[in-house]
């Protein structure tokens, strides 16, 4: 296989707080090939956003990357100097946030912001930069881009604002886009439109996409691979169809069972008992142990992630077997 666009190896991002060390990301590894989409799924506090921030070098004090490598086209982003990182960020690697107002400056017109972004990484004339900005707005499905360039962010609706944020991310045709819950705040029909655009982009431009979300259903339709995070660690990783059809980790299994559409109407959902433990106070051994129906003596030790089948990584001593699944 060719060098993956992004390869994260044993990434550890810890936050040194007064209450203790929070291991927000602990030993996370995955890779994304050119033109592929990896869905990073987890609930609040699972460390999925911090993983995204670590890749872009956006982790602020008291947080710090304490170990591991983030290889972008073979170059390690962790050891890279800030000025080298600046060259890549917004140019070869772009990020889309949940709230587009995090990307957009409310007091500047959209054309100002987009032209500035183009000129930051490319030596072109202002007119060429404007041209590029207009083409990109058209590409993400914004009608009459010439006029909309002159608007301020508040003059756009939520969905359109997110399109502008996506357009800004696409200005330099990046090789990698990290998208953190970009459609969560949008209405379903608008979410459908954005997902369709993104899908088209990944397949036509060869951009690798890390799609961070809590919504398994979005990942099901969009991603090639999925990694499920729990309490700072990846607990299961594999191709979307395999992970969602035959989950091996009890957490993934519980999570899929919690999604209402999958279950029979009016009947109780298969729920996971308890709640996500505080990262400050993780139970020893497997972090999911206290909520796990399959927990046993062996789970008191810390499970390592292991390859159960080709391309299927699971961090569990007692993974779900086919038989157990049929019985359930």
């Amino acid at each position: 296989m060719a060098t993956p666009t992004l390869e994260v190896r044993n990434l550890r991002t810890h936050f040194f707080t007064r209450g203790g060390v929070v291991k927000a990301v602990d030993d996370v590894s995955f890779s994304i090939q050119r033109g592929k989409v990896l869905g990073l799924v987890g609930e609040s506090g699972s460390g999925k956003t911090v993983t995204g921030f670590s890749i872009l070098g956006l982790v602020d004090a008291p947080g710090r990357i304490v170990g591991g490598q983030i290889l972008f086209q073979g170059r390690d982003l962790v050891t890279m100097s800030e000025s080298e990182m600046r060259d890549l960020r917004g140019n070869r690697i772009a990020m889309i946030f949940q709230d587009p107002m995090m990307t957009l400056n409310p007091v500047l017109r959209v054309d100002t912001q987009m032209i500035e972004t183009v000129l930051a990484h490319k030596k072109v004339s202002r007119e060429e930069a404007r041209q590029r900005a207009r083409d990109t707005l058209g590409m993400v499905g914004i009608p009459s881009p010439d006029e909309r360039l002159k608007s301020y962010p508040h003059q756009f609706s939520g969905g359109m604002r997110q399109r502008v944020a996506i357009a800004i991310a696409l200005l330099h045709e990046p090789d990698l886009i990290v998208a953190d819950e970009p459609t969560t705040a949008l209405d379903v029909t608008i979410q459908g439109q954005i997902l369709a655009e993104v899908q088209k982009l990944a397949s036509t431009t060869g951009t690798a996409l890390l799609w961070i979300t809590h919504d398994l259903s979005v990942v099901a339709g969009l991603a090639d691979d999925v990694a499920v995070m729990y309490a700072g660690r990846i607990v299961e990783h594999g191709a979307v169809s395999e992970v969602l059809d035959t989950p091996l980790h009890p957490y993934t299994y519980g999570l899929i069972g919690s999604v209402p559409s999958r279950n029979k109407r009016g009947e109780p959902l298969r729920q996971i008992p308890g709640m996500t433990p505080s990262l400050l106070n993780l139970p020893p051994g497997c972090a999911f142990r206290t909520r796990c129906p399959r927990a046993a003596e062996v789970c008191m030790a810390e499970p390592e992630i292991r390859e159960l089948a080709p391309g299927r990584d699971v961090r569990c001593f007692r993974p779900m077997s086919e038989a157990a699944e049929q019985a359930a």
Partner: peptide, 16 residues
């Protein structure tokens, strides 16, 4: 048609 479903696999999203 717009609702993402967990049963669906890599597919083109319907667009309104």
């Amino acid at each position: 048609a717009s609702v993402p479903r967990i049963e669906s696999r890599k597919r083109a999203f319907a667009v309104v």
